[in-house]
Design a protein around this nucleic acid. Structure first.
Lengths: 194, 194
DNA sequence: TCCCGATTCTAGCACCGCTAGCAATCCTGC
DNA sequence: GCAGGATTGCTAGCGGTGCTAGAATCGGGA
């Protein structure tokens, strides 16, 4: 009876331990440093236990990514709540988004860059993912002009943010002008509105 | 004398062979299939010859990427030349860009996604890279409103295109609405201009 | 106390990028 | 024509990867 419960609890704890260790290792040294051997050593278990919890390394990254979506949603919401007008809110959310990516590059990679076996653009996607996208949506909605689809506009704005981040992070865009590019992007999405 | 020449020529031919084989293999089966062993087998030489031409696998990818930049520049120029007005030209270039990425995903990855040891945002960058960016710039320039920097605006528009492509390719954005998102992006960059 | 089942580990597979050191080849000078 | 020497390309191997089969160990129930 209770023994079963205890085992399930311990198992859940160990799963959490794996995800946390993977995330910390990735944030400290990048995902390349997160090998199954290294991760196993970190949690002080042998390699195969990882596979009794997750299908493979990708699934572990996916679990880390889901954590990230929840945190991103919180940060975006805070940024939007702190801003005054609609334009300011969008700018604040854009800055919060790129700031999240800058502060947590490994987490961002798991969420948006790495190939990871998560359902994305479907209702089956994790709730945290929908929440994060919803925060973006709520920031974009007020500046939608008639005739435009809010969802599509949000996706497009999101793509702009994501493009800025990835191109900058890979050295393809100079870091210095990031703020200028970001405000250009936001300005062009809010222009002609209101 | 001439013997030296012949050797240099043969060496250059083999180098070209490596790059071509890498590109074809990548386009046919993706970059994961391009292992040094596989590539060596493809060119019918042993593995270490690759390292007498290139510092490593990344350098081979970089060489493939440079080929891609040249081709992209050509396609963007053609699209711009075929269009009538400034807005139509930008839309055409945007479509040509995303179409290039759709038709040549592996090439696009080498150019814009993969970490590759190429100088990018500096004058030392390959000429083909500057040409490709120049084509984008020439499409954006006519729609720049006063006060905005054309270079920065081009970078921002480029980031939008790149974000749309990568998020769509990784399944994070549904493929169906791509055309709608692309025209939204272009519209928001041309709005309030002229 | 003993046994059985679940759990965890050891050992190993096939692959990766990359390199040291040897063998064969080809050009040069006698 | 032929030996000597540099160059070239090969074989073999290193340390690493993700992942897994099967042995061993541990815990709970009879």
């Amino acid at each position: 009876m209770s023994i079963q419960r205890r085992r399930e609890r311990e198992r859940a704890e160990r799963e959490k331990l794996i995800v946390t260790a993977a995330r910390e290792l990735a944030e400290a040294e990048g995902w390349d440093a997160v090998t199954t051997r290294r991760l196993a050593a970190e949690i002080e278990y042998s390699q195969p236990v990882l596979y009794s919890h997750f299908k493979g390394k990708d699934a572990i990254m996916a679990a880390v990514a889901v954590e990230g979506f929840a945190e991103l949603a919180v940060e975006l919401r805070a940024a939007r709540a702190a801003a005054e007008g609609a334009r300011e809110a969008l700018a604040a959310v854009g800055e919060a988004y790129t700031d999240f990516a800058r502060r947590r590059p490994a987490l961002y990679d798991a969420m948006f860059t790495h190939t990871v076996d998560l359902p994305f653009a479907t209702p089956q996607a994790p709730a945290a993912l929908h929440e994060a996208f919803g925060e973006l949506l709520r920031a974009v909605e007020p500046i939608v002009t008639e005739g435009d689809d809010p969802g599509l506009l949000t996706e497009t704005y999101w793509a702009g943010l994501h493009g800025l981040i990835t191109l900058m992070r890979s050295g393809r865009l100079p870091k210095e002008a990031h703020a200028a590019r970001l405000s250009l992007l936001t300005a062009h999405f809010t222009a002609c509105a209101t």
